[in-house]
Simulated assay, not measured.
Amino acid sequence: MKIALVRLTAMGDVIHTAASVQFIKAALPQCELTWFVEEKFAPILEHNPQIDRIVALNLHSLKKGASLRKIKALAGTVRSSGPLDSVIDVQGLVKSAVVGRLAGRDLHGLDHRSAREGVASLLYRHRHRVDCAGIAPMRFASLIAQSLGIEISREMMAGKKPYLFFDPEKDQSRIDTFFKAGQPNLLIITGASLPSKTYPTEGWIEVIRELEGVNILLVAGSTDERREAEKIAEATTARLLPPLDLDGLKYAVSRAEVLLGGDTGPSHIAWAMNRPSILLFGSTPPTMMFETERNIAITSGADVHPCRFDKNDRSIANIPPGKILGALERML
């Protein structure tokens, strides 16, 4: 049986969807699994032995200038991956539904009340209901399980095996030099995709200044994120890691005793790799992560809608540094 998942973006959602792969393979061990993903997120899935084929698509390039030649080339890439027996659009957007339709006729997806873009459901042969208020990895697992007629329970997800992998042959010595033996290594993801998910620079400084005997490493991606991270490093004992590709990011997370960050893609890598983490939530609900004894959420206390998020909500700034410190002390 040839199965395909369509989950193009974003990093956190790709990570949470990938949690289901091991359960697909356990239930259908002879299946061949293909994944359609946006090109820049493809490395997050690489080196997973249970994903048979990753098809990286540069749909983002169409925003800069769509042309018939580009569209034909992308469509050809998708079609050449078939024929596929069953295709599941986990994203629920028109663009992901179109990709799924090109990949195969037996297309599963969310019904019009569940999909982020309800009109996308018109392109599916099979439509399934999933509650948007559910825990993120379980929402995606529910759609996949309904589509394939398999079971993926919360108990199964809680006992998952790590499923993100880095290249074991790659020289990571430039990252290794930042980690210390004999004391806990704390990795802090200082930025996020939206300001509403970003903890204030002053708050990070206050937290770090209270920590003793901890090797604190900062991770930042964009130019703006690195500028703010440099301010934190200058004011504290924390050190900023060099720019990391996704393979290096996975490797760095694997070496940390604890990861601390907001509700952003890089932060969710820790749960996927069965590493301890503390995530901060303001404008988004804690259902955006799968909480365990070693993966905990700290919320701002704001009244957040479970399905619709306010990008202007800056309540994450209301989380007291002391609350973060208390969680860190217990975890470390």
Rank of each mutant, 00 (worst) to 15 (best):
A4D: 11
R7T: 02
M11E: 06
G12L: 05
V21Q: 05
Q22M: 06
K25F: 05
L28G: 00
C31H: 11
W35N: 06
V37E: 09
F41T: 01
K64M: 09
A75S: 14
S81V: 01
D85C: 06
D85R: 10
V87F: 12
G92L: 07
L93T: 03
V98S: 07
L102G: 08
D106M: 10
H108I: 04
D111A: 06
A115L: 04
R116V: 02
R129W: 15
D131R: 13
S142G: 06
L148R: 09
E155S: 14
M157A: 15
R174G: 01
A181E: 15
I189V: 15
T190N: 03
P195R: 11
P195T: 05
P200T: 07
I208C: 10
G221F: 08
G221S: 02
D224P: 00
E228L: 05
A229C: 06
A233C: 07
P243S: 09
D245F: 06
L246F: 14
R255C: 13
D263F: 14
T264F: 12
A272W: 13
A272H: 11
L279R: 12
G282P: 01
T287P: 12
M289G: 10
I296G: 07
D313S: 04
R314G: 05
K323I: 08
K323C: 10
E329Q: 15
